[in-house]
């Protein structure tokens, strides 16, 4: 009782919470309404008095601006990278959590060190590297460098360390190979961590801009954020269309967020506590 008396009354706190929520949501409401608006004021404001809905902004995007390919590219890249991270980070996490051999600590150190490297610093060599490897402007350039992320390895290692090892031991005694152990025993136990990791990796790659931007050059290889950023310079694209394209980019993340909201927030909270 004493604690409640010190804080503002419940209704007042709800009002404050809702106003803050409005500050964070208002631009997105504007985005949604704008993308569906038939008429826009020149300054980019909406004429709410004469507001009417239309889907034309969306349909014209696919017919005129060719947004179909970037959407497909984004889906392919984000999905493949997510699957890759789930598999490879689990494998690496397992070895780092369970096995003992010389140099293991060095590998663990490399993971933690790389976590701290600012990625934008190496855009020039990454660009040259993809050229030398002959994968510039291809799916490989957008996928290969991101298949294993240090954060993923770290998360999986941390999670696997908390699991009891008894089942692995008995499987090993029965002659199961390390691969079977990871696949049949560790993976199923890691489901919660894998869920967190997948959502995280998918979001990051779906939204990623700078690498897809510098590692591709042809229109057919663009991902959605790149296409979006370059659309605004087009003479024939107006604000409602730009908003519609933005909605297409924001929609999957929003759906993921609504469905996995707890997973995402808990993932960040627990990840932060362990790190």
């Amino acid at each position: 009782m004493t604690r409640h008396s010190k804080s503002p009354a419940r209704p007042l706190r709800l009002v404050i919470a809702a106003s803050v929520a409005f500050i964070f949501l208002a631009p997105f409401i504007y985005l949604l309404l704008g993308s569906l608006a038939k008429n826009f004021n020149l300054a980019g404001t909406l004429d709410l008095a004469s507001y009417s809905f239309t889907l034309a902004n969306y349909t014209s995007l696919f017919s005129q601006a060719g947004l179909y390919r970037p959407v497909v590219n984004s889906i392919i890249v984000a999905l493949v990278v997510t699957v890759g991270n789930v598999i490879f980070c689990t494998l690496c996490g397992y070895v780092l959590a369970r096995r003992r051999f010389r140099g293991k600590n060095l590998v663990m150190l490399s993971v933690v060190m790389v976590l701290m490297i600012p990625t934008h610093v190496v855009i020039i060599p990454m660009y040259l590297l993809t050229n030398w490897l002959g994968i510039f402007d291809s799916y490989l350039a957008l996928i290969l460098p991101f298949l294993v992320t240090p954060l993923g390895v770290f998360l999986m290692r941390q999670y696997i360390s908390t699991l009891p090892a008894d089942m692995e031991e008995s499987a090993r005694l029965e002659g199961a190979s390390e691969w079977t152990i990871v696949w049949k025993i560790v993976m199923p136990l890691c489901k919660p961590a894998i869920a967190v990791l997948s959502v995280q990796v998918f979001l990051v790659n779906w939204n990623s801009f700078i690498y897809p931007f510098i590692l591709t050059s042809s229109e057919s290889m663009r991902t959605l954020p790149v296409a979006l950023a370059l659309l605004q310079g087009y003479q024939s694209i107006n604000i409602p269309q730009l908003f519609a394209a933005s909605m297409i980019s924001a929609l999957p993340t929003t759906i993921l967020f609504v469905v996995f909201s707890r997973r995402i927030t808990e993932g960040i909270i627990s990840g932060a506590l362990k790190g």
Partner: peptide
Amino acid sequence: FPSIVSLVVVALI
């Protein structure tokens, strides 16, 4: 929520 939306989208808005 704003942190999970693409930065490009936010910048355009």
